[in-house]
């Protein structure tokens, strides 16, 4: 089965304006906090062009929710694995994966989400 390698890049698409600071060019920790199902949805973007990366976000995330796509947080899979989280590839839709293995303690979730945000790069649409 195909597995995500540490050197791969992943994108978390951003749909809310308060989830990033354009002025400080950074994403905020809430971008990576897990959903109530314990998963953070991301897409594999290594080897894709900028246009292709934005196209995935528009088609698979924004349009399906009827919300405009505002940006994305790119992060290396290494940082996710380095924080003892797991990356589960489901390819549904293609290139989709979930960050799982979050602690049940909200304070620890926060700390790890903060670490991921510190290592992520903001790209604005």
């Amino acid at each position: 089965m195909d597995q995500i390698k540490p050197e791969e890049n992943l994108a978390r698409y951003i749909l809310r304006k308060d989830h990033f600071s354009a002025q400080q060019k950074r994403v905020k920790y809430v971008v990576f906090m897990p959903a109530p199902n314990g998963k953070t949805s991301v897409f594999r973007i290594s080897s894709l062009s900028e246009n292709e990366i934005w196209e995935i976000g528009s088609r698979e995330v924004a349009q399906k929710r009827g919300i405009p796509l505002l940006g994305r947080a790119d992060i290396s899979a290494f940082h996710i694995m380095d924080n003892n989280l797991k990356l589960i590839l489901d390819n549904n839709p293609p290139r989709h994966a979930n960050i799982t293995g979050w602690s049940s303690e909200k304070s620890e979730q926060k700390l790890i989400a903060m670490e991921l945000a510190e290592n992520a790069q903001l790209h604005l649409k």
């Binding site: 308060d18 905020k28 906090m33 510190e118």
Partner: peptide
């Protein structure tokens, strides 16, 4: 900030790795 678990979050950031 609003957190996905339904909590209200407060963030103070002084700089890189000072949060």
């Amino acid at each position: 900030l609003a957190e996905p678990g339904g909590e209200v979050g407060f963030e103070w950031r002084k700089g890189d790795r000072l949060v």
